[in-house]
Design a protein around this nucleic acid. Structure first.
Lengths: 108, 108
DNA sequence: TCGATACATCAACGTTTCTTGATACAGGAG
DNA sequence: CTCCTGTATCAAGAAACGTTGATGTATCGA
């Protein structure tokens, strides 16, 4: 049934797109250590504020991070479930699972 | 130490980029059922030949698929290791692994 | 209320990516 | 050798993406 409920292709593509940029991969790595505010990401990554804000929005829109306002600061943190979904997709399409069950239909 | 051997950021971004397009996600799904030739992918996906060839090249260059020529036909198949690496990355950055070990350095 | 700080948004621009149609190449059939 | 089929590559245009600098918004402190 996992198979039957595989998420829509467009949705999967959007997940992967969210992690297809080096800056966003770095952000995810930093957030894997815990919640971070924009200013710290900015310091560590050496990125301009508006650039970081852009990438954080992409990650947020795709469900990889959530934000929490605390006074002047906004703290971002990773959404574990999104990462799990990525891993689940990779596992679901892993070759071998369907071996022999679906024959090719051309080039006969 | 798992931490120390995480693959380079740019490499990770390239993996995810390879799966950031709906056509390529579809291709990967089809190949998860076994080896396929271009003409069958073409039929099933309803895509033009040059378009498919373009996406297959992206997948091949990023290590997700391998090709095998058999007479006139070229058969593509998934590379299980690339999928495993994706899953491994997702697992490595999963929040909670480092909980509490890396305090924030600003917004004090 | 005023200024400063943290962050988001916007417009403009250059770059990359994707699609299409044309052409090239390779292998098999005759 | 010549034609046909399967696939790859290329050039051109369109669309999506990422960066930058400017501006907007919210919160805090004085």
């Amino acid at each position: 049934m996992e198979q039957a409920t595989l998420p829509a292709t467009a949705r999967v593509a959007r997940w992967f797109h969210a992690l297809s940029d080096p800056t966003r991969v770095e952000i995810v790595r930093m957030l894997s250590h815990g919640e971070r505010c924009v200013c710290e990401l900015q310091n560590v990554l050496g990125a301009q504020q508006s650039r970081l804000s852009f990438h954080l929005r992409v990650l947020k829109d795709s469900g990889f991070v959530t934000d929490r306002r605390d006074g002047r600061w906004v703290h971002y943190s990773l959404n574990r479930e999104a990462l799990d979904e990525i891993a689940a997709f990779a596992a679901a399409v892993r070759p071998g699972k369907h071996a022999g069950s679906c024959e090719t239909a051309c080039c006969s």
